[in-house]
């Protein structure tokens, strides 16, 4: 479905990403992990096309994205951005209907079918009751769900998420990830999520891509990627990795080791 072919990107002379090559298949749920500055966000921007690769190609359904119209990309790929307040006030329904944009002509109005799709998207994300509310007046968790509803209204086959759980409380984090798992398993949506939360990713993602200094450090099922050695090498902290008591997924516990986690004063 999506293939990165030796992709690299640089700001001026410094390579931020190098030789990124992997592919995701229909139905995958991939989590992208890595420390600050490892290139996670840049990688996401290359996949969603906001940035163009300095070398290599990003292929969507076998086609080089560089030569594709934004409209055609938007019919396949939806992005749930980091939550930001809007300058102008739109209602939740207006925001969700914006997801229909790639399917509408310039001067067309939303049809009954578009409204139906938007309503279904709002029901799946439990935002239907918010339809008439002003987007800016919602809580962070509600806004994040509305942004997913908009992405679903696009009827994409690939969903990208950018740190979507970062500012959610525990309950909303779990609800959010459960929704993603539902969409992934029941609707066959392919998901690629950039996140900081290793444990949440281990619990919900089928595959993990671990980035270190702009290169792929490891790629595989959580059990193979999230290991004590892996965490130490990539994050430079000592961590214990055991099994989640409920699911058996790897669980990371950071060890407060003064020697390695805090740089010595000189």
């Amino acid at each position: 479905m999506l293939e990165l072919d030796r992709v690299g990107f640089r700001y001026r002379e410094d390579w931020v990403l190098r030789e990124i090559g992997f592919s995701i298949e229909r139905g995958d749920f991939l989590g992208i992990l890595g420390p600050n500055g490892s290139g996670k966000t840049t990688l996401l921007r290359l996949i969603d096309g906001v940035l163009s690769p300095g070398e290599g190609r990003v292929l969507l359904h076998g086609r080089d994205m560089a030569g594709m119209k934004r409209r055609d990309i938007a019919r396949v790929m939806a992005v749930v951005p980091q939550d930001q307040p809007l300058v102008f006030s739109f209602s939740v329904r207006e925001i969700v209907l914006m997801g229909r944009s790639p399917h509408l002509g310039n001067l067309a109005f939303e049809s009954a079918r578009d409204l139906e799709i938007a309503r279904t998207a709002m029901e799946e994300t439990e935002t239907a009751s918010l339809a008439e509310r002003n987007f800016n007046e919602l809580s962070g968790g509600e806004r994040q769900r509305v942004l997913i509803a908009r992405a679903l209204a696009q009827e994409p086959s690939l969903l990208l998420l950018d740190e979507s759980t970062a500012f959610l409380d525990l309950r909303h984090q779990v609800a959010f990830m459960s929704l993603l798992r539902f969409l992934n398993r029941e609707k066959g949506l392919t998901i690629l999520a950039v996140t900081h939360d290793i444990n949440l990713a281990a619990l919900f993602c089928g595959k993990i891509l671990l980035l270190k200094e702009g290169r792929i450090h490891a790629l595989g099922p959580p059990k193979e990627v999230i290991t004590e050695t892996g965490i130490r090498e990539v994050y430079r902290v000592r961590a214990a990795v055991d099994r989640h008591p409920g699911t058996g997924a790897p669980r990371v516990t950071v060890m407060p080791d003064m020697e390695t986690s805090v740089p010595k004063e000189r």
Binding site: F88, S101, P102, Q154
Partner: peptide, 18 residues
Amino acid sequence: RALNLLATGEPTALHLGI
């Protein structure tokens, strides 16, 4: 309609096919 999307941010407009 493209401007509705642009009003919510340029990356968003791009993601929605503008």
